[in-house]
Design a protein around this nucleic acid. Structure first.
Lengths: 205, 205
DNA sequence: AAGGATTACTGCACTCAGTGCGGAAATGCA
DNA sequence: TGCATTTCCGCACTGAGTGCAGTAATCCTT
């Protein structure tokens, strides 16, 4: 039995190695490109065996989404902490904001790299969409649980899908047109389009 | 120069081989499973060389989405043929109905298999989402072009994303709960949830 | 109908992601 | 210190996907 206040050596070491892998991958992807970097390269740079890599990340793509679980948890917590008066769509928006919060680290090297690779490397985009969809379903489940009188799981999933889809669609369109806008402008343009799209939901009552 | 009414031998043969590949893959996936079937198996069953497979389909996953382009084209045509009085959301719904039309062939062996593999094999789901997102963006572009006064590309993408997201989310939630409902019931449940979710948009004015 | 030009087919050798296995090393715990 | 449990990691392997180069099929012109 492990005492809960004790973070074992193993856990610390594991977290350190995991971070080392992400850092090494970020650096190598930036210098050699995604396809030009092999898993063997990354493992070597993080000073572990190639085989061991796969006990930290299941696939090469997953290196680019290391905080996916944390973000999801933040969103679920936000749903659980809803104010009693709020309506589902409002709670959902707050939760989604928590997910996007981490993309305030658009400044972070990893996040910037991720955005580039998503629009560049098909397999990365595919993995990202998968992760997004899984998170969506989980959020929908919790949302339905938080509003048992007003939503069932399918309805909650439709609502969540609509909101996430609006954001994702706007972002995709923005990144598709090759203008030289900075991150802040992109963000503003996206928020404007999404706000207008979702307006019919938010302003009733 | 080729005369437009002439379908060359090459094209006919190519289409036949392509169909043979899809048929062989469908059969093999059903009997041996997706992972249990190699591309070499499929190529052999369609009587072509393994190497030649890749001049028909870029990846193994693409075998499961052979009519993706046709469906997209149908949706785009529907947008182009809009009635002058229609509002964007209505046209979009009509277009999306054209995309889904092909899934009326839920009866078709391929469509049924696809649904199963999407919820079973990660790479298949990833590819499906990718195709979906690409189609979304293309639809948004044409929608924006069809309503130049009311939508820009980003706004159209947000709208399209919201609608597609609602459908996709509802479907995902439905297929996730392991009840024994038939295709017709699933369809009905999905449509109900989506209709309710999108109601705030449709009933204004 | 025959010619050369173009395009498709295919085998070969190769890279790389990812897996199963088994032994060796590190860690946790008493 | 000693023993149980994880973790690490090399090895051998499968299967997807690519580049290349030679051969076969199709096309088009005359």
């Amino acid at each position: 039995m492990r005492y809960c206040w004790h973070v074992s050596l193993r856990e610390r070491k594991r977290a350190r190695t995991r971070q080392a892998l992400v850092d090494a991958a970020t650096r190598l992807f930036e210098t050699q490109g995604y396809e030009g970097t092999t898993i063997a390269d990354i493992a070597a740079a993080a000073e572990i065996g190639t085989r061991t890599f796969f006990s930290y990340f299941a696939t090469k793509e997953d290196l680019l989404f290391p905080e996916a679980e944390d973000r999801l948890r933040a969103a679920l917590d936000a749903i659980a902490a809803r104010d009693p008066g709020d309506r589902p769509a409002e709670v959902l928006l707050i939760a989604l904001r928590h997910v996007g919060e981490a993309s305030d680290e658009i400044v972070s090297p990893l996040a910037a790299l991720r955005l580039e690779l998503i629009s560049t490397v098909p397999s990365v985009r595919g993995r990202g969409l998968q992760i997004q969809q899984d998170a969506q379903l989980e959020i929908a489940r919790h949302l339905a649980a938080a509003f048992p009188d007003e939503l069932d799981v399918v309805g909650a999933a439709a609502l969540t899908g609509a909101f996430v889809g609006a954001v994702t669609g706007a972002l995709q369109a923005l990144f598709d047109q090759p203008d030289g806008r900075g991150p802040a402008e992109l963000r503003a343009a996206m928020q404007a389009a999404v706000a207008q799209t979702l307006a019919p939901w938010m302003d009733e009552r």
